[in-house]
Design a protein around this nucleic acid. Structure first.
Length: 419
RNA sequence: GGAGAGAUGCCCGAGAGGCCGAAGGGGACGGUUUGCUAAACCGUUGUACCAAUACGGUACCGAGGGUUCGAAUCCCUCUCUCUCCGCCA
């Protein structure tokens, strides 16, 4: 959620943001403004009536304890309560409308985000390494894996349906190695503290990071228990400090966690139907930061570098894309995508997404910090990035490390992890 | 899943219809005293919203409803925590 004050003080700035995101019609800003004004007026009225109730009730109490007759005052109060109840109901309704609109409003965009209409306007910031040269036609990971008997899509479908898969032997071991390698790197060299948290979370958590209420269709929800399967460890990690006030000395907080991620992929029927690229369940190592506002853009650069380091050590060629305004997710103010080269697919594939959310998530989840003793709590800034998506990393390793005789070499840094 | 107990401010803990945003203690912060430390004493110490002229108003004692002129306090529902039993990796 953005600062509600912006609606009052800089509505045009908000409008410009929506326009830049290509979402001009997504939120009725003028309606939002009206609701806010009405809401505040009704709150003021309600408070006045309550003040009267409190004041008169006190007088009644005093009168009665002095043995006096309070019936006149009590008669005066008879209508007041109904009035308060009516107004309270109105405030509740207006608050609900206001919040719904506020929650559906995307984050303000950083000035550094290029304007664009779709992903083709994303900006290549830098590349690392080079496309590997093969003296044979490299296979896509799904053919290679199926032929080797280590990726079993048919049985994945039998067990669960389309976009599910089974790993056997080297695939299972490689992915486990990849995860352990990434966790070790981030915890021993990048300063993240390893965390393990639930894969199922309540609605407050999903709202806190921005998944709900807007994008309900994208996620698996267990109706019976009111819990959702996490689409990323960002959700439990960021919500770790929901409704808390941290001391400044604790910041920055860096956490990392490996988890399964569950996505319904509702809007992507027909896209990436083969292989490990787009699946309903995958593993990922997530990086999350809680930082002081002044530092969040620097922290984004460092976070992105932490994710890049994984690809460098795996010696996988990649490029860093600065997402354009239309492609930057609603909660983010600025996002870098890491795209790894997949020689079998003959294209780059997103393998990490690193974002600065400013106080957007912190507001929704009420995560604050105290600058100094005695000072008011302030919202901190949150960031996160994949470090990396394990399934796609496995696919990238398979495609980049395949040999002419159809085998897969194990990258040097993973060897200690493969027994 | 069954039975019972509980949820109050940073922490402990009182409060049992009005004078309670909440006693008391601890902690933290500021001050006095002091060669330093310690001790003692005094003071301060929640969050959000409305209005912004204010030493202004409102809400919050797990959450949501109800009773009442008035609820931390009475009633109902829910959530969570703890203990015992059952089940279980």
């Amino acid at each position: 959620m953005i600062d509600p004050r912006l609606v009052r003080d800089d509505l045009e700035g908000v409008r410009a943001m929506l326009k830049k995101r290509n979402m001009e019609s997504a939120v009725d800003l003028d309606g939002l403004r009206r609701i806010d004004e009405e809401r505040r007026a009704v709150i003021a009225k309600t408070d006045d009536l309550r003040e009267k109730r409190n004041r008169v009730s006190k007088e009644i109490g005093k009168l009665k304890s002095g043995g006096g007759d309070a019936s006149a005052l009590m008669a005066e109060m008879s209508g007041v309560n109904d009035g308060i109840k009516e107004l309270e109901a109105e405030v509740e309704r207006l608050d609900a409308d206001f919040n719904e609109l506020m929650l559906s409003l995307p984050n303000m965009l950083s000035d550094t985000v290029p304007e664009g209409r779709d992903e083709s306007d994303n900006l290549e910031i830098r590349t690392w390494g080079e496309k590997p040269v093969f003296d044979f036609k490299p296979k896509p990971h799904y053919d290679l894996g199926t032929e080797l008997g280590i990726l079993d899509f048919e049985r994945g479908v039998k067990l669960s349906g389309a976009r599910f898969y089974v790993y056997r032997d080297l695939a299972a071991k490689l992915e486990r190695a990849i995860i352990n390698f990434m966790l070790d790197l981030h915890t021993t060299e990048h300063g993240y503290s390893e965390t393990f948290a639930p894969f199922v979370v309540n609605d407050d958590s999903m709202i806190g990071t921005g998944q709900y209420p807007k994008f309900r269709d994208e996620y698996y929800r267990i109706e019976r228990d009111g819990l959702s399967l996490i689409p990323t460890a960002e959700v439990p990690l960021t919500n770790l400090y929901r409704d808390e006030i941290l001391d400044r000395e604790r910041l920055p907080v860096y956490v990392t966690m490996q988890s399964a991620c569950f996505r319904r992929e509702a809007g992507s029927a027909g896209r990436d139907t083969r292989g490990l690229i787009r699946v309903h369940q995958f593993q990922k190592v997530e990086l999350v930061k809680f930082v002081e506002p002044e530092t969040s853009f620097d922290e984004l650069e460092k976070l992105t570098a932490n994710a890049e380091e994984v690809l460098k050590r795996l010696k996988l060629h990649y490029r860093v894309m600065l997402l354009c305004s239309a492609d930057t997710s609603a909660a983010s103010t600025k996002t870098y995508d890491l795209e790894v080269w997949m020689p079998g697919l003959d294209r780059y594939v997103e393998i990490s997404s690193c974002s600065n959310f400013l106080d957007y998530q912190a507001r929704r989840a009420r995560i604050r910090y105290r600058r100094a003793k005695g000072e008011k709590p302030a919202f901190l800034h949150t960031l996160n990035g994949s470090g990396l998506a394990a399934g796609r990393t496995l696919a990238a390793v398979m495609e980049n490390y395949q040999t002419s005789d159809g085998r897969i070499e194990v990258p040097e840094v993973l060897k200690p992890y493969i027994k």
